[in-house]
């Protein structure tokens, strides 16, 4: 047999161009972030870290980061807890309407974000009579991240032999004890992975956060606020570089954990998230 690349090189070339298209923004980001010039364009004018340094001198940015971190941490905890419930239930026995219930839990994945934002804004302001605040964003982000956490955890739970928990109960543990001593350690990599994914999504989410932010500014809302000032663009690049680096580090960690979890359960890799 011929090596695959010989069979159809056009496809491989296309794949590489496509990857370039996908990664173009990420590759350019640090280039401009470390560029001396104020104008974001080629040719580059020289290496500088001054844009990163200015980041330190902005208290409004710091409070935005703080809000975003609080939101992202809370969201990742809640979404992962819901994800554990959903994935565990999904892996257990069937009953009527189970598919519908799971479908409803996964629905936020395809709901246009603006609709979600509108609906939640109306709920918070009209029905509950509250001003939108940090915690309304957490509510919304938890809803949006739960499907992602669920699909990450689905792999972990679906691969779990149901008789393991029964065996633990047979050996004297209560239902909760069996879950804690057997199931939890086995799905732990999935749990951490789900938390990281939810964290990243929440940290980056803009559309809903903007609707529900009220007087809180999250990091994306802050960045959005800079959109009209072209002299702020290099600062956005610097900020973006940090964010992207953080995302990639977390993502790689999540992926490594997910794979380790699979290996620990002695299973084949069935593909990535989603």
């Amino acid at each position: 047999m011929k090596p695959p690349s010989m069979k159809f090189p056009a496809l491989r070339i296309y794949a590489i161009i496509y990857l370039l298209f996908l990664f173009a923004p990420i590759i350019l980001l640090p280039i401009f972030a470390f560029n001396e010039g104020k104008i974001i364009a080629f040719p580059l004018t020289g290496f500088s870290t001054r844009w990163f340094e200015t980041l330190w001198e902005r208290p409004s940015l710091h409070s935005a980061v703080q809000s975003s971190l609080i939101i992202a941490v809370l969201t990742s905890i809640f979404a992962t807890i819901f994800g554990i419930f959903a994935a565990r239930g999904g892996a257990m026995a069937n009953f009527p309407f189970k598919g519908g219930i799971i479908g409803f839990i996964m629905l936020p994945l395809v709901l246009p974000e603006i609709i979600l934002a509108v609906a939640l804004l109306v709920l918070v302001t009209k029905v509950l009579g509250l001003a939108p605040n940090l915690y309304t964003i957490v509510l919304a982000h938890t809803l949006m991240c739960t499907p992602y956490a669920t699909s990450v955890l689905n792999g972990a739970f679906a691969n779990l032999d149901a008789s393991l928990e029964e065996a633990a109960m047979d050996l004297g543990e209560s239902r909760w004890g069996a879950f804690r001593l057997v199931t939890l350690p086995l799905v732990m990599p999935g749990i951490i992975s789900a938390m990281l994914i939810s964290f990243i999504i929440s940290l980056d989410e803009f559309i809903v956060a903007f609707f529900l932010s009220g007087n809180v500014t999250t990091l994306p809302v802050y960045i959005y606020g800079l959109r009209r000032q072209s002299d702020q663009l290099p600062i956005i690049m610097a900020l973006g570089t940090i964010l992207v680096a953080l995302s990639i580090i977390l993502l790689v960690a999540a992926e490594i954990l997910r794979r380790r979890g699979l290996r620990r359960a002695g299973l084949e890799d069935a593909g990535g998230f989603l």
């Binding site: 032999d161 008789s163 393991l164 029964e166 004297g172 209560s174 057997v182 086995l186």
Partner: peptide, 20 residues
Amino acid sequence: VPANERPTNMVFQSYAIFPH
């Protein structure tokens, strides 16, 4: 009497050895 309090123990068909 729940399973964990019965004087029985089981060897499962899949053995259910705790892999961790």
